[in-house]
């Protein structure tokens, strides 16, 4: 189980209190009725589904109830940082993202074995 730092409550809480809420930094279109089908598909259905570092929204559902953003590695599930909604993407240059080599997933250990 993960411990997630809520930037509003300013403490680490159990994963059970949180819900993932999709990709972060996506502007909801204001002209939805005029969009082409291609643009609507790209906004509504298509996903980057990143393997590695991703920026996503989380909600502290069973806590303060507020949405915030997180930078997470989808291979290790490690949260690199969390930050309040509305803030720009943080500079992760100083943060070293977790890589497969540092994590004991099946994938990581298998590729080590190779």
């Amino acid at each position: 189980m993960l411990l997630i730092y809520c930037p509003y409550c300013e403490e680490e809480r159990s994963e059970l209190e949180f819900r993932q809420a999709g990709d972060a930094h996506i502007a909801r279109p204001t002209n939805m009725t005029e969009m082409t089908d291609e643009d609507f598909e790209a906004f509504f259905f298509l996903r980057d589904n990143v393997k590695g570092l991703t920026f996503e929204r989380w909600r502290h559902l069973n806590g303060c109830g507020r949405f915030f953003n997180a930078a997470r590695d989808t291979v290790s599930d490690k949260f690199l940082t969390t930050y309040k909604a509305g803030l720009p993407r943080p500079d992760l240059g100083t943060l070293r993202p977790a890589t497969e080599a540092t994590v004991e997933t099946y994938e990581a250990t298998e590729s080590d074995a190779k």
Partner: peptide, 10 residues
């Protein structure tokens, strides 16, 4: 409940 490539789970 969250997307991941970790091949493990909670």
């Amino acid at each position: 409940q969250y997307s991941s490539y970790s091949q493990t789970g909670g």
